[in-house]
């Protein structure tokens, strides 16, 4: 079983990397681009035999304990 965790800065937290990427896209002529936000993806291989509900519960715990800093970041989890 695979879990994918997406972590990004919360709305309202300044994302200078996203802004720099947005500025660069503008310079390259991609005028349709507005705000850009950067985040990261973490892929986890989980042991087989775990129920989807258990996997979600455990991965949420991992996010709260290590994978995300919920003071400034939000996260979402995809299982499967």
């Amino acid at each position: 079983m695979k879990a994918t965790v997406h972590v990004s800065l919360k709305v309202g937290v300044l994302d200078p990397q996203g802004k720099a990427v947005g500025d660069a896209l503008g310079r390259l002529g991609f005028d349709e681009v507005g705000a850009v936000r950067c985040g990261k993806t973490i892929e986890l291989e989980l042991k087989d035999g775990l129920s989807k509900a258990d996997a979600e519960r455990r991965v949420k715990e991992m996010c709260e304990k290590l994978l995300a800093n919920t003071v400034v970041e939000r996260y979402s989890i995809d299982i499967g």
Binding site: V13, L14, P16, Q17, N69, V71, V72
Partner: peptide
């Protein structure tokens, strides 16, 4: 220390990058 929960808040990338 902020990650340990000893102090509130967090340190983000410098605004200037």
């Amino acid at each position: 220390a902020t990650e340990l929960g000893l102090l509130p808040g967090a340190l983000l990338r410098n605004a200037s990058l």
